[in-house]
Design a binder for these strands. Structure first.
Lengths: 204, 204
DNA sequence: GTCTATATTCCGATAGAC
DNA sequence: GTCTATCGGAATATAGAC
């Protein structure tokens, strides 16, 4: 059997289409017909490659979760000084989300409805380990290098500042009266703005 | 016709049940049967009071949107000095979300799928007006009272720091190894921690 | 107003031809 | 592997008795 180029493989077309639909509409909002249409094939063919909707969805979810969670460890596990970690995390994470703007909201929605513990199990294998970072913050506070702050609060601040604007994009666009181009510029600026803001807040 | 107490009225029971279900599961994930069960009545009765699922959903959505958006104007329209505004907003908004933890994610999800522009039209009537706040920040920067920062960035920072942790709660609980009680304590602390953090970042 | 029973629609899934 | 046609279940919605 001769295969066509990988990116035109039917299975890949389905995955690509499914990703697009599921990330925006979620499991219950997506239709197998929509996915088939987006892939330019027949609905039955989707079932031929992936037994059922749930299988297809979990394939996508697993793939995306493996993209999302390990990136968090950038800030947890590197061996840099605190300020450097913060700078690297913000730049890398915002860049990542610029490429996948729907990913954070999708993942958070799935965690919120993870009734069968599918994601919980993925998480337990790709466990983020914030312990080192939290202790690092604690140490800096004790040394008096940075202002007193609960390590958990600082961690939440960093993640919030990087992720939230993407989830709120439609609201921000409207409230600030900006278009997609302007939004992207704001996010590009945030790659340095967020670390600057945080460091100004904690530096003595 | 004699009415029972308002909170035991059938229509109110339905709305209360529908709110609980829709806020967690969304429009497509919710079942009319679930709502009927939660209200302790028959499924047909839901259709008697609200013609169909869409009508019921939009009733809830309208109600919740009217709760959510005007609260944003707390930070936009009050006549206080900048630092006071920030303090008041964080305290009031975090308190509000502590009472309605599912509200932000619900609203943001709806905005993201607002294909029929239902929410867009609500928004255009309850328009948040950030202009005054943005100019206020700009003025302070020019006066040299606070460090240079783009007004839009500061606004995004404030909103992000208040809202995001609630949306990411299940992830935070797991990553930080905390329970609901501890999470609530962290959020209570944030009511003063967020303003302190922001002011430290921008104060000269 | 509230229920039971039933109609209708929608959608995931399968059968079977090519 | 890919399609057309269809099945079957689930969910929304309505009819009609009480």
């Amino acid at each position: 059997m001769v295969k066509s180029a990988p990116d035109t493989e039917t299975s890949d077309k389905i995955l690509q289409a499914a990703r697009k639909i599921f990330l925006v509409k979620g499991m219950s909002g997506a239709r197998m017909q929509d996915i088939a249409d987006a892939a330019g094939i027949n609905k039955a063919l989707v079932h031929y490659y992936f037994r059922n909707k749930e299988t297809l969805f979990k394939t996508i979810l697993l793939e995306e979760a493996k993209k999302f969670f390990p990136k968090l460890n950038l800030v947890f596990e590197s061996d840099q000084p605190l300020f450097t970690k913060i700078e690297q995390f913000a730049a890398a994470y915002i860049d990542e989300i610029l490429e996948n703007p729907f990913l954070p909201l999708f993942i958070i929605n799935q965690i919120n409805q993870d009734t069968d513990h599918f994601l919980r199990d993925i998480l337990s294998r790709n466990q983020p380990r914030p312990h080192a970072l939290l202790r690092q913050i604690e140490t800096e506070v004790k040394k008096g290098t940075i202002r007193p702050i609960a390590p958990e609060q600082l961690l939440m601040n960093l993640v919030s500042l990087c992720i939230f604007p993407f989830m709120a994009k439609p609201m921000l666009n409207r409230t600030l009266g900006i278009n997609d181009k302007k939004f992207r510029e704001l996010m590009e600026a945030r790659k340095t703005e967020v670390p600057r803001f945080i460091i100004a807040a904690i530096k003595k």
